[in-house]
Design a protein around this nucleic acid. Structure first.
Lengths: 229, 229
DNA sequence: TAGTGGTCTAGACCACGGA
DNA sequence: CCGTGGTCTAGACCACTAA
């Protein structure tokens, strides 16, 4: 008889989703479950640990394991490189550098990124195309104090994201999703009307609290970000 | 000396982010690492398994473990109940049922949810408020073939999401994030101008492939969905 | 203070999949 | 083939925390 941690996990999950273990109810402890399933406690432990990681149960020493009231279901989004994202659509990817300059950080960004007054930023504006049509407008700032090499790289051929991923380590990322109306600049680059509703992603990347880069990605109208879990 | 799996994970992660283990490089195998750290192989295994789960390394039998080129970083979003979401803002939550009716599924939804022609849907429109101001417009359909009980519940007092979470099991969820312009209805309910850019979430919930519910959540202008990893 | 989960060990067998 | 990771075991000690 093979009782794997997957079997146990699947069985418990089944009992949860089918209502035999309703929200708030307490599961048997690990020793009991190990006896029930006829396996080692470590095997039960792994099954339950994964259920907890997945947000189905809540575990506390001494108190035991309970089925969560409102399962803290979590959606996982992979953060793709735009080139890959376009390729996955079955479209041909192309790229263009719109502008590039180095300047002290604007106040708004300085506050947001926690930069000093003397920090300089490399500001890049880029366009990403799918089959020649505008796909994404990228507005990026790179902290040259954290990544001086970026000043010497020519971003005319490929996007800064690919370069950063390959060259610069990071530890923390903050992401925000929201909707904005297209301004004149966005409208011109994304080939849409001013005021159109655009899906926008903002991402701040840090290495041990020091801001490395901030990027604002604006997608063409109608773009959807989808996931499944 | 206490070498925990957390120590090992942190140490390897440090070596990866600091460039001592560059993308594409192969890590020592589990037996070697266990010797290096002076611990059991199972401990190393857990550290490396988590690094793989987190997307930092790729593991293959016989081939060994490699640092990923482009770390498949994943953002995790908790899918909150609106009541909780508003409470977390420090605002007072209130709710109102706007409309409720039962009808055969419109073609568009029937196709999307994979419903039969005779399936009937409970269609609910609700408003969620934060400190009395419009926060979210909820447009929901519930498959009565999957959840007949919903027909007998009065949603005047609390939202369908809370009821569904407590009453109805599900196995699969599909989510989409995007931006839409406010139409007249949305503008009226969210107290904004028609055409305003709104952040919208669409979610389809299934139990073993059978569609349970589909919901379209439209947020007030300026809403941001944020996460960190 | 006692029960529960968190973690580690030393060893074992197995499945996958490069060479 | 045979090296690597995947998993299980039986036992142990410990940390946290509810009662």
């Amino acid at each position: 008889m093979a009782t794997t941690y997957r079997d146990i996990k699947a069985d418990l999950l089944h009992q949860i989703t089918q209502g035999q273990l309703p929200p708030g109810s307490t599961l048997p402890n690990e020793v009991e479950l190990a006896a029930t399933y006829g396996c080692a406690r470590a095997t039960v432990n792994r099954a339950m640990r994964e259920l907890a990681d997945d947000g189905f149960i809540e575990r506390r020493r001494k108190a035991g394991s309970r089925v969560r009231d409102a399962p803290v279901r979590q959606a996982r989004f992979t953060i793709p490189v735009t080139r890959q994202e376009v390729a996955d659509l079955g479209a041909t990817y192309s790229y263009a550098l719109v502008s590039r300059d180095v300047a002290p950080a604007p106040d708004r960004l300085r506050a947001r990124l926690g930069l000093a007054a003397q920090d300089h930023l490399l500001h890049l504006v880029c366009m990403h195309y799918a089959d020649g049509a505008p796909y994404q407008y990228e507005n990026r700032w790179i902290n040259l104090s954290a990544t001086p090499d970026a000043a010497h790289f020519d971003f005319a051929q490929s996007g800064p994201n690919e370069w950063l991923i390959a060259q610069v380590p990071f530890t923390d990322v903050q992401i925000s999703f929201h909707a904005v109306p297209a301004d004149a600049t966005l409208a011109a680059h994304l080939d849409c009307a001013a005021g159109d509703a655009l899906f926008q992603v903002e991402r701040t990347t840090r290495l041990d609290r020091q801001a490395v880069t901030f990027v604002q990605l604006s997608y063409r109208p109608g773009h959807r970000m989808t996931t499944q879990y």
